[in-house]
Amino acid sequence: MTGHHSNSEIAVRVRRLEERLIGAGLTSDDQLDGIIGQILSGSPANGARVVARAWVDPAFRERLLVDANRALDELGLSMSTGPQPQRLTVVANSATTHNVLVCTLCSCYPIGLLGPSPSWYKSEAYRSRVVREPRAVLAEFGLVLPEATEIVVHDTSAESRHMVLPMRPGGTAGLGEAELAALVTREGLIGTAAV
C-alpha cells in the first residue's frame, strides 16, 4: 500500500494485518491496491447517470428494472468490487410508492457503483429505525411523503444490492441528460430524498 498511513490505532492494525496476509501469500500489494481502486472508482455520479438515462429513455428504464446489471453494461458501468460483479436491482419510485434502502445487519451498499456509503447509513439509529418507522425517519431527512404514499423498505440482508430510481422532478422537460443527472443526489439513490 502506498502513502497516507497515519499512526492511528486502526491504521496500525490494518497495516499489520496487510503485512501478515501478504507474508502468508494470501494477497499482494497489487491485489489490495486493485480492490481499493475499484471501491474508490464508485461514485453517486454513476447512479445519477443511470437515473438520467432512465428518465429520458423509457426502453432503457424498462431494461434497467428487469436486469440492472445488463443495463449498467450499456453505460460502461459495473457492480464489480472483486472478481465477481454483485447482482443489482433497481426499484422505481412512483406517485403511489416510495422505496428506501437499509442494511439492518451491517452496512451492505452498492459500493462498486456508488462508492462508499454515507456514515449515517451505517449508524445503528438509521438501521434500527427505518425498518420500523420509515415515515418518521424520512421526515427527519426532510422528505415528508403524502399519507397515501406506500413505503417499501428494502433490507439488504443477502447478496444482492439495490438502488432507488427516483421520480423525475416536474419542470425538467427542457433539460438534457447531463443536466438531469446533476439533479440526482446520493440520498435520492438510497431513498432518503425525493431525488
Partner: peptide, 23 residues
C-alpha cells in the same frame, strides 16, 4: 435466495402501514 415482503404491522405491531422486504 428469495425476496420476501412482510407487512410492517406483523413485524412491529399496529399501526404498521408500510412494507419491509427481506432477502
Amino acid at each position: 435466495v428469495y425476496t420476501v415482503r412482510f407487512p410492517a404491522g406483523a413485524l412491529w405491531g399496529p399501526p404498521g402501514g408500510h412494507w419491509v422486504q427481506v432477502e
